[in-house]
């Protein structure tokens, strides 16, 4: 579904990610793990068109989307939930969700799916997004991303700023989405959580893939255990 091959990107002339290849097959959940500053965010932003791809290619359903404008990537069926969420703070929950469906009118079925997944959002329908708690904002960001009926959901550190309990709740909803057949690519520092969700994972360090494999294998890998799972 998504094939990233040899992607290099960065800010201005400063290369952060060098020659990274990742692929995601339909229906899979794939994790990208790595420490702070490893290049996870930069990598995801380049896929979504927020940063220029200086080398390599990004193919989505057989078509190259490298350097496509952000809104075109979004309309092609890829929804990106950035770590900073980028909600519309002075709009209500309902309006934020409606914009998720842009340029179409919001689909009631999809909206009830979102409300089923996050009942909290249904309660707060009229509240301004900027006045909600971090956990609720996270739900809204995912909900908004789902409104366009994406085929691929990309999340960057969905647990940023969340208390541990809320973080695992966030992953429970992602697991629920999986059972509905959603394809997911997620970058995460909280390795135990994300490996519980993902089928496969990539370890990104210093802008390059260090390791890849099925989640179970990664969980058993001594390097991963030492670096991310706190096993000595």
């Amino acid at each position: 579904m998504l094939e990233v091959s040899g992607l290099s990107t960065g800010y201005d002339s400063h290369v952060v990610v060098l020659g990274v290849s990742v692929d995601v097959r339909e229906g899979e959940a794939v994790a990208i793990i790595g420490s702070n500053g490893a290049g996870k965010t930069t990598f995801l932003r380049a896929i979504c068109g927020l940063l220029p791809v200086s080398a390599g290619d990004v193919r989505y359903e057989g078509r190259s989307i490298a350097n496509l404008a952000v809104h075109k990537v979004a309309r092609a069926g890829i929804s990106f939930v950035p770590a900073e969420r980028h909600l519309f703070p002075e709009m209500s929950v309902a309006e934020n969700l409606a914009l998720g469906a842009f340029p179409n009118r919001p689909d009631p079925d999809q909206q009830s799916l979102v409300f089923d997944l996050f009942p909290r959002l249904a309660e707060r329908r009229r509240q301004a997004a900027g006045t909600m708690s971090g956990g609720e904002q996270q739900m809204l960001a995912v909900g908004r991303a789902l409104m366009s009926r994406p085929r691929l959901l990309i999340l960057d550190e969905p647990t940023t700023g969340l208390a541990p309990r809320l973080a695992s709740q966030a992953y429970e909803s992602l697991a629920a989405l999986r059972t509905l057949g959603m394809t997911i690519l997620v970058a995460e520092q909280q390795v135990p959580l994300v490996l519980g969700l993902a089928d496969r994972g990539y370890v990104l360090e210093n802008g390059a893939i260090q390791l890849e494999g099925p989640s179970a294998e990664l969980r058993d890998n001594p390097t991963v255990q030492r670096a991310y799972l706190g096993v000595v």
Binding site: D12, S13, G49, L50, L51, P52, N67, A69, V70
Partner: peptide, 8 residues
């Protein structure tokens, strides 16, 4: 508006 933002 485009990601090929030149260095300011």
């Amino acid at each position: 508006d485009d990601h090929t933002a030149e260095p300011t």
